[in-house]
Computed example of a mutant assay.
Amino acid sequence: MELEILTPERKLFSGEVYGVQLPGITGSFEILDKHAPLVSALGSGKIKVLKDKTGTTILYNINGGFAEVLNNKVAVLVEGAVEI
């Protein structure tokens, strides 16, 4: 599945991933390949990008935002983010 993480200033990440864990406002959730369409608000917390099945990950701290899943593409729009 394709993932894009965007801030108002720049694109933080763009590419094919196995999955992504996101901090929803009522708890964290995970998006995997062929997930149903979804729009969700995000709270402050960590985004965990699962690059592949072997466990390679990238972590970002975010201040909140929104996520949209449609046609096996995930767009994450965040107000501020720092890779950790």
Rank of each mutant, 00 (worst) to 15 (best):
V78R: 03
T56E: 03
V49Y: 06
S40D: 02
D52H: 05
E68P: 00
I62G: 08
K51R: 12
N61M: 02
I31C: 08
I62E: 04
K48C: 13
D33F: 02
L42T: 11
I47L: 15
T7I: 13
T56C: 02
E16V: 11
E83N: 04
N63Y: 01
T57A: 02
L70D: 08
K51W: 05
P23D: 03
E83W: 08
Y60C: 04
V76L: 08
N63C: 07
A67S: 08
L12W: 04
P23A: 06
T54R: 06
G19N: 13
I5C: 13
E83C: 13
F29R: 01
G15L: 11
K11D: 01
E16M: 07
N63D: 10
E2Y: 14
K73S: 10
Y60P: 10
G24F: 09
V74E: 04
V20A: 14
F66T: 02
K51A: 11
K48M: 14
P37H: 00
E30L: 10
L77T: 05
L38P: 07
L59K: 01
V49H: 01
K34L: 14
E9K: 13
I62L: 12
V69H: 06
A36Y: 04
G45N: 07
E16G: 03
G55Y: 01
T56I: 00
L22E: 11
K11R: 09
L3S: 13
N71R: 05
E68C: 01
V17E: 04
N61C: 04
T7W: 12
L77F: 12
V78S: 07
K34Q: 14
K73H: 13
L32H: 09
I84T: 15
F66N: 00
F29Y: 10
G64A: 10
